[in-house]
Design a protein around this nucleic acid. Structure first.
Lengths: 354, 354
DNA sequence: CGCATTTACCCAATCGTTTGGGTTGCGTGA
DNA sequence: TCACGCAACCCAAACGATTGGGTAAATGCG
């Protein structure tokens, strides 16, 4: 249990070997062959002595030296738009957990959703000789994935998908459908979507799923009812302002593809003297911890963010092992709360039902 | 500009040397001595040839090999309670920026504010041979700082301080005072504090600063008016419930030492049929991007989170250089918004002013 | 008992950089 | 002319771990 006391320089294999009177290579083999004591490496008595001393001295192998020899760093690079985005931060927590369990370390960098910066950060990670990359910020039509692929660099996508490449995401399309079903069932017929950034598959898929199901149900939704926006609170507020400024046709429900955008929208709605949940229903996405705790609790589609991160690590390990892996889409779940619990305002319902 | 094309194995110094017909050590010296061309290393003509080829081939030194030789990894370890806490995530963005500028990489890990996990994560980072640690989650009375110090491991604290050790924090005490001044000036006389976790210097200092100034102004605030809580929305809600459940003496203003706790409190206040900003003023801390965008915009003390992160890197670099560094406290600023803009309810003011 | 096999090791090269110390060959001042 | 200095290199030894290939002794088998 003890770590080295005041140890100035870390203990090396050679130190251990010298103290035990055996050769460093023997020590290495013992410490390496986890549990397969034999392997022709050393007698079980010697092995035990080695392990005991290593523990006492707090030996830990120098990763630089090891990677120099093995050509593997046991490190992954993770690129996200920004960690101050709760969604990505949570996914990263999953990544860190799963990576640590597999004895991998992770470097994270923010790309600010800027393709050039994204490429620069990837290059920095590769210069660090990471064994693979997890990209959480890929844009539709990105050249980076093609290029990495051509260079045979192991990578997986997280959060956003890109057809033809391995990814760990939420089933965003299904998420959109869940919202459509819910709003339709509660009587809404005039709805709008705050759709997020068009370059993000999350935004596109959630919006598409919603529209598709809405049509299947017999609803109407035009392009003008879909407003693209930033993912943050301000983006949501602006988008909602746009929707509310439209002459006449105020929707009775708004689906924002992100909780933060939803919160911004709630602010705008209140500024217009309307009450969320009574005059206008609002549904968000991701079910961040905030949603349930807001003054007016927000209905939201819960995406398994932690699990998405964990699975990304698993996929990457399989890619590195040379396996052919399929994109993964984890199932979301809708949580209905006060922001959309009431049935649609009678006036609006009647006007459109007739 | 080009990086290696389909390069299977990365280019090495030896490759470059062979192609140029010179010795690897010469190449190393040229590529190393940034701008001091001379140094007796090579002629400026040779130096130029070396640099040109290095650029063309996309050479980047193997960090493992370099650190093996130099005993430095050019990497820092960062430990935070959790990156899904927006405050720490933002500080980390500052860390990443500043580190990258100085050609350092960073490993981040979550400790979930658990001392044992914190120690484990620190040990993992040290096994990775990081050049120093940035600890964002230190608890009052932590043994870890003492121990790291005894082991001569370079580290700095961030976000939370610990007397006697270098740290980069907000001047939390001052922040608390700003809130006291504001609430006093707007006529409040009966206030409560949602104080956060008692093991965090941020919580303690903000609360202490508030109470101290409140007394200086002639106000009364008892221990019962201070409720310790978790930093998240749920913690804030629970704390507010406690305050509102107290018979008779409902405060006219609440200072929550964290925006998320403030949001939780706003929820609880609304559940009790009261309106934030009219019946009860609420002030938060950190001025996260959410604060200004909430349905009822939240007054908050802005702490320079990004700068705190950047400065932590600067401090750590100085510690590594052997300098003696002093703790740093960056100045916060109060932003007053609708949640506390109105003057205190007349009834409450009169009752207590008499 | 002789031979083959296994056990328990040791040896040495190697990964890519860095760096303290040469070694040339040329120009220069005395 | 000669010693000296300097420019422009080269040499080789590390750094610590891994790993393919020994080798001597012990054991097994018929």
């Amino acid at each position: 249990m003890r770590t080295e006391g005041t140890g100035r320089q870390p203990i090396t294999l050679k130190d251990l070997a010298a103290e035990l009177g055996i050769h460093p290579s023997t020590v290495s083999r013992v410490l390496h062959s986890t549990s397969e004591i034999a392997r022709g490496a050393a007698s079980s008595a010697t092995a035990e002595r080695v392990r005991k001393l290593a523990r006492e001295r707090g030996y830990s192998p120098d990763p630089g030296a090891a990677s120099l020899r093995t050509r593997r760093t046991k490190a992954f690079g993770v690129i996200v738009p920004r960690l101050s985005d709760l969604v990505l931060a949570t996914m990263y927590e999953g990544v860190e957990e799963a990576a640590a369990e597999a004895r991998y370390s992770t470097f994270v960098m923010n790309s600010h959703d800027n393709p050039e910066e994204q490429r620069r950060k990837a290059e920095i990670m590769l210069a660090r000789r990471v064994d693979g990359l997890i990209l959480g910020d890929i844009h539709a039509g990105s050249e980076l994935v093609q290029e990495l692929s051509a260079r045979h660099i192991p990578f997986v996508l997280m959060n956003r998908r890109y057809p033809g490449f391995p990814s760990s995401t939420c089933d965003d399309n299904l998420g959109g459908k869940l919202v459509a079903d819910h709003l339709w069932d509660t009587g809404h017929r005039s709805v709008a979507v705050i759709a997020g950034e068009p370059y993000a598959s999350t935004a596109v898929d959630r919006t598409a799923g919603f529209r598709q199901r809405w049509h299947e149900l017999g609803g109407q939704i035009s392009d003008a009812d879909v407003v693209w926006s930033r993912f943050d609170t301000e983006g949501g507020r602006e988008a909602a302002e746009t929707l509310l400024a439209r002459r006449g046709s105020t929707p009775t429900a708004v689906f924002a593809v992100n909780d933060f955008a939803a919160i911004g929208a709630m602010g705008a709605i209140r500024s217009h003297g309307l009450t969320v949940g009574r005059d206008i229903a609002v549904v968000g996405f991701n079910d961040t911890s905030l949603a349930a705790q807001l003054p007016i609790p927000l209905s939201s589609v819960r995406s398994p963010m932690l699990e998405i991160g964990r699975r990304a690590v698993e996929l990457l390990r399989r890619v590195i092992a040379g396996e052919q892996v399929e994109p993964l889409r984890l199932t979301p779940e809708l949580f209905v709360r006060e922001s959309s619990a009431a049935t649609a305002p009678a006036a609006a319902r009647n006007a459109l039902a007739g």
